[in-house]
Design a protein around this nucleic acid. Structure first.
Lengths: 203, 203, 203, 203
DNA sequence: TATGAATGAGAATTCATTCAT
DNA sequence: AATGAATGAATTCTCATTCAT
């Protein structure tokens, strides 16, 4: 009765936590990572104290957002690993993620800049693991150069997500730059032309 | 009177301007883009008022740094266009620039995040133009896919510069990711397919 | 209904009140008088709301602690008045109290700093009364200068309790400073002159 | 010309520093050590930023005040050591200091509570040294018990300064409690009895 | 022109207190 | 009665910018 371990009243607590996270994501996306906590409070429709009750530090809030985001990406990667065509799943994931980055701009932007030392190692590792799976499968079917390593993929992914914030960024440019990267990941004599040639050569 | 193009007492005036720019670059590189103007003043060995005399706004200072940086890059690109091997000059420029980004981290970092709306269109266009030259020449000798457009190259370049700030970044990773990109820019049957073609040609 | 003097469901109500008081004393002792109510709640194992139910204001909580403390001291004084040697009881009480102050530091500390205007006049008067008894008895047996008044004693006592918080405070220093005070309270030719007289008498 | 080492403009700077210190002393005396920096700014007639320019931390401000105060006391002690009657100088200093404490209340109050870890060791040692001189001289002329040590004196002094903040404090009480302490510091059979005894003993 | 002190709006964070559950 | 989430005023501190010297 006096030990504070009940889980009843937390219904609204958890609801607010979510609202705050959503608001924060939005505000950071709009105004960059230096947006004030006050703005977030306003957008979330709560008092500023409420934010600090849930996330005792701005850091903590940032961390939470990043973890959330990473988890989402991980889920998507896993879904593609489970259902998608191994040959294209990684590229789909890549495209999908960049697409979302456009919407979350500086949030994803933060993702990269762990210079602010958000401790999210675990969440990053989980994502890495899922990407690794996608990569391996693609390599198994010959869709991606076998020597490619996971960190190359995630780095290129992060890079393109950040590029999303460039003023010149647009869907067409996105399509063309991703094409370059995808080509860069594809084995040298891709397939079609060579096969034809090879067949002929075999005779 | 305040534009640095007229003559007069500005012997040390211009010297100060340069010192401030250098100091600012250094401070931003060391302490991130949120470094205070005061710190810059200290590093430059001038009073804070002097900084604001030269750059009426922090924005203006940022702009100046970026223009400076872009001009340097442009110069390097031009040098390579003049002296380098057309087939490799663009890749050399690419590598070179990323290499520098590693050292200037948060400066380059700012470059991308033009969310701070630095009006540097002109300097960017000059760089674009120089890159365009490098690209065209490489395409002329068949070193780069002919359909590649300049904005793809600059975007990929900016992306990789930003990736430089990732905590996992290291020379090896840099080498491998750039290799992917370079491969992505290279025409499909780079060499080996030629053998097949040659065989056919032999008939 | 809210005064803790009626009967009813307050079995655990009163228990909580005590727990809170104890916790508060401890927290203040450990973290200084600026400790937050939240900390007290944690240490007491109750929710913060419960604290405010029992003590509608932080002031009220402080008051309660002080009254508690004063009552304890009063009890001890009374015990010494009942059982102790009149000649030494006051000094014993003095020493005892200072000793406790060392342990309760910032609590006693608050005691003095009634700048926070705790209205505890009554409890203070009760203590004064008990001290007065001790003093009178000591004076009756010639152990303390007859002109000494109660407020001198309590003031010196309070002063020494506060001194307890000095960084240089230690048992040896405590012993020596109290010795000075005790000497100060002792009638002028306490013994030595007598010895001289005695010696003469012996001849 | 560009090195910031001139000392010209600092006229107003130093003036403000003094104003701030004075204001802070006053505000703390009135409102206790938890008074806000803003209040101090108002009383000093400067913007709050100015305070933080001079004292980068509230701690620093507190420290400065304490050092100032300690220096004043040290000066007074030294003056008395130079000019005063050795037999009474220490008591005069004691009284004088307590007298001032009445006016500076919680400032002196802070003095004691170095719990807030103001690093003022040096200033404290200087004062200790001066008090030591006063004490030694008094002991040399037999005005104070020879076994008394300096730390006893300074501790009793600090204790009485703090007692100054008690609500019951008043000039009469001050006089009487100090009398107790002075008596406590005085050799047992002050003088007259000893002479008699000594003479007899000489025989 | 350079200096550096002053300004003051804004940011993060804390905490006593209230109130819905 | 107890719980603990929400509130929001207050506080410390920062920093771009202004201005007297």
């Amino acid at each position: 009765m006096s030990t504070p371990k009940n889980k009843g009243v937390r219904a609204d607590g958890r609801r607010n936590r979510a609202r705050i996270l959503a608001a924060a994501e939005g505000v950071f996306a709009d105004n960059g990572p230096s947006a004030s906590t006050e703005q977030i409070a306003v957008r979330a429709g709560v008092a500023i104290g409420t934010i600090f009750r849930h996330f005792p530090t701005k850091q903590a809030l940032l961390q939470a957002i990043m973890k959330d985001l990473l988890r989402q990406l991980t889920d998507q990667a896993d879904a593609l690993a489970a259902n998608g065509d191994p040959a294209t799943a990684l590229f789909t994931f890549f495209t999908q993620t960049v697409e979302q980055a456009v919407r979350k701009k500086s949030v994803i932007d933060l993702l990269a800049r762990t210079g602010i030392d958000l401790q999210i190692t675990e969440a990053v590792q989980l994502l890495d693991h899922s990407v690794h799976t996608l990569l391996t499968r693609a390599q198994d079917v010959g869709a991606i150069t076998p020597t490619t390593r996971t960190d190359e993929v995630t780095t290129l992914l992060a890079a393109m997500c950040q590029a999303t914030t460039l003023p010149s960024w647009n869907p067409d440019l996105q399509h063309r730059t991703l094409a370059v990267i995808f080509h860069g990941l594809t084995p040298n004599p891709p397939n079609p032309p060579n096969q034809a040639n090879d067949k002929q050569a075999e005779h």
